[in-house]
Amino acid sequence: MEVFAVEGLPEVRSGDDLAALLDEHVDLRDGDVLTVASTVVSKAEGRQADLGEFEPGDRAREIADRIGAITGERKDPRFAQAVIEESEEIVLAAPFILAVTRFGHITVNAGIDRSNVPGGDLLLLPENPTTSAQQLHERLDVPVVVTDTSGRAFRQGQRGVAVGWTGLPACRDWRGEHDREGRELSATVEAVADELAAAANLVTGEGADGLPVAVIREWEFGDHAGHDALFRDQENDLVRQALAEFEYDT
C-alpha cells in the first residue's frame, strides 16, 4: 500500500467546511482511506476553549493539588475541571488524569490538547468523532478514520490511534480462521483502524509539521469478518477494573 500526507492545507478555523477543503487539496480514488487528525476536525467544529471558561469545583481542586504534590509542578485546577467536564468517568486521578471520553475512548486528560491552538488555550476532542467521520464520508465517498495520538501502557512513546471511523470495520476478526499448521485461531482480533492511524502518523508527523491529513492507497480489508468493537466493554476490561481500585501512594 501507499501512504502519503496531503500537502498545502490551510490553517483550519472554526466553521470551516473541512470536506470542501479536503476535496480541493486531494484527488481521492476508489479504495482510498482518508485519515484526518482530530485536531483539525475539532477546529472546524469550534471545539476550542479558554481556561477561563472552566470554574474549578472541589473535585478539580483536589485532583490538581494532589498531582502537584506528587510531581512538584503546579496543576491548574481549571484544566482539571475541563477534563472532568469532557469525561464520562475519571479512571485515574493521580499521578496523572486518565479519563473515559463520552464516546468511549480512554486517554490522558480526556484528549485535551494545548499544542497548536491558535486563539485559545485548549483544543477539545470532537464530541463524537465517528459522527464527524460519517459527515466527511458522505461528502467525499471514501472510508474515513479520525485519528489522535495516544500513549501506551508498558511502552515508551506515542502512536496514532483511531478515535472515530466509518466506511470500514475497525477490526479484522481472525477467530475461526486457521494458522499454517491448521490450528483454529480463537483470540486474534486485529485493530486495523488503529494500524491505519499509526501508519498515517508516520507521514503526518507531530509538532509543527502542519500535515494533519493522510491518504492510504491500495489497502484492502481482505476476506475476513469485521466488527467495530474497538473499545473494550468495562465488564471485560481487567486493567480498567484494577485501576478503579488503585490508590497512588504519596
Rank of each mutant, 00 (worst) to 15 (best):
Glu2Met: 03
Pro10Trp: 15
Asp16Ile: 13
Asp17Tyr: 03
Leu22Val: 10
Asp23Thr: 00
Val26Thr: 01
Val26Tyr: 08
Asp27Ala: 10
Gly31His: 06
Val33Ser: 13
Leu34Asn: 09
Ala37His: 14
Ala37Lys: 15
Lys43Thr: 02
Glu45Ile: 06
Arg47Val: 05
Phe54Leu: 08
Pro56Thr: 03
Pro56Ala: 01
Ile63Lys: 10
Asp65Ile: 00
Ala69Phe: 10
Asp76Arg: 12
Phe79Leu: 14
Ala82Thr: 08
Ile90Tyr: 06
Ala93Trp: 08
Pro95Tyr: 15
Leu98Pro: 03
Thr101Trp: 04
Gly104Met: 03
Gly104Arg: 04
Gly104Val: 02
His105Thr: 05
Thr107Trp: 07
Thr107Gly: 05
Asn109Ala: 10
Gly111Met: 04
Gly111Asp: 02
Ser115Met: 12
Pro118Lys: 10
Gly119Ser: 11
Gly120Val: 05
Asp121Gly: 13
Asp121Ala: 09
Leu122Asn: 08
Leu124Ile: 04
Pro129Glu: 11
Thr130Ser: 15
Ala133His: 09
Gln134Pro: 00
Glu138Phe: 11
Asp141Phe: 12
Val146Lys: 12
Arg152Pro: 00
Ala153Thr: 09
Arg155Gln: 14
Arg155Trp: 02
Gln156Pro: 03
Gly157Arg: 15
Arg159Ala: 06
Trp165Phe: 10
Gly167Tyr: 06
Leu168Glu: 04
Ala170His: 13
Arg172Leu: 12
Arg172Ala: 05
Trp174Phe: 15
Asp179His: 04
Arg180Met: 15
Glu181Thr: 00
Ser186Tyr: 08
Val189Leu: 11
Glu190Gly: 02
Ala191Lys: 15
Val192Ser: 08
Ala193Asp: 09
Leu196Asn: 11
Ala200Cys: 06
Asn201Tyr: 15
Val203Ile: 06
Thr204Pro: 06
Gly205Met: 13
Gly205Tyr: 13
Ala208Glu: 12
Gly210Val: 10
Ala214Leu: 07
Val215Asn: 10
Phe221Cys: 03
Gly222His: 11
His224Pro: 00
Ala225Met: 05
Arg232Phe: 02
Glu235Tyr: 01
Arg240Ile: 09
Arg240Tyr: 11
Leu243Asp: 07
